[in-house]
Design a binder for these strands. Structure first.
Lengths: 178, 178
DNA sequence: GTTGCCATGTAAGGTGTTACATGATTTA
DNA sequence: TAAATCATGTAACACCTTACATGGCAAC
């Protein structure tokens, strides 16, 4: 359950509302997220139940009331423990590979078109990732080391897409030679 | 729903039972799979309902009856259409990146330990991927092109882990320099 | 005698996505 | 006048994992 810790992480910077968190998730690239708030509000209820956050309700005149969530000592402790817990391996889910596995039924031109489409999609994502790093919308940078860590997280995404691009181009080249 | 098409793909080679499919999934690296059969049997029921496969029950003396699934023309058509449908981007889910994002609270030695553990895990996966490619347990190779495609699928996994390893080693080196 | 193979499945729960619902204010 | 912003949430469903359940036979 990663969203739980991502929320605790953001709250470790400062108190936030569900709506704030929603924006932070959509602004951050490294947290894969559908764009919906369902999970956020649900998780916040759960975090409150587990006493990892406190809630303060702030009434407003012009806008709906806001629920401001603040992380507790227990929450900070839980976050730290999670960060120190054994790292898991990345999950590379790529349905394109499954397509390729049964792509020998295609004509050479059809396969070529498929590969070109994939190459294009990956290229676009790479450009987007680079642009997002440049814009650098969310960056805590409370210390030099933290700024460096966040920069490296962006680099990881960029490197993954670059790697994928190299792979698909090699595939195209080698298929062309046959 | 990838498992559906992976099943159709395997059935496009030859008729198989749920149990056969289970083994093929656990032998194949490129289809991320929990190791459980729940989804397989469920999906087979669905495929039969949609007339993409037919069932033949074979009674046996010494072992339980087997349900042999054969792909239909409709199933082959569905598979081909899916292969030709627009490719999706890979999903890089990596909870380690989320840990890193809030790792500035750690002591240098704690962070170093964390990175070393991650490096080790990735290294092991890389070795396993290479070994699995070498063993080459499932390989249709009905044509030279198909053999090449399957080889490339293995390479994709290997390249991803190599790429991750380069990334984490650079991170360690640069943190050490600070 | 325990493990693994053959072969089928069910139950429950976690995780994530899509879509729906409300309603005032501000901006283009 | 349409859209975006602020701000909360619910309902339904899709997908995936963990664990449970049965039972004979063969191999070590």
């Amino acid at each position: 359950m990663n969203i739980k810790y991502a929320i605790l992480g953001f709250l470790s910077w400062r108190p936030l509302t569900g709506y704030d968190l929603k924006k932070m998730f959509s602004d951050s690239t490294f947290i894969y997220w559908s764009g919906n708030n369902n999970q956020i509000y649900k998780t916040l209820v759960q975090l409150h139940r587990d006493e990892l956050v406190t809630i303060e309700v702030q009434h407003q005149e012009k806008n709906p009331s806001r629920k401001i969530y603040t992380i507790t000592q227990k929450g900070l402790f839980e976050l730290r423990n999670w960060v120190l817990s054994p790292p898991e391996l990345p999950q590379y889910k790529n349905s394109f590979l499954i397509k390729l596995a049964w792509a020998d039924q295609l004509e050479p031109s059809e396969l070529d078109t498929l590969l070109k489409k994939y190459e294009y999609e990956v290229e676009m994502q790479l450009l987007m990732s680079r642009e997002q790093k440049r814009r650098n919308r969310i960056n805590p940078a409370r210390t030099e080391r933290e700024a460096y860590l966040w920069s490296t997280i962006s680099d990881n995404r960029i490197a993954s897409f670059e790697n994928e691009l190299v792979w698909v181009r090699k595939l195209q080249r080698e298929l062309g030679e046959k």
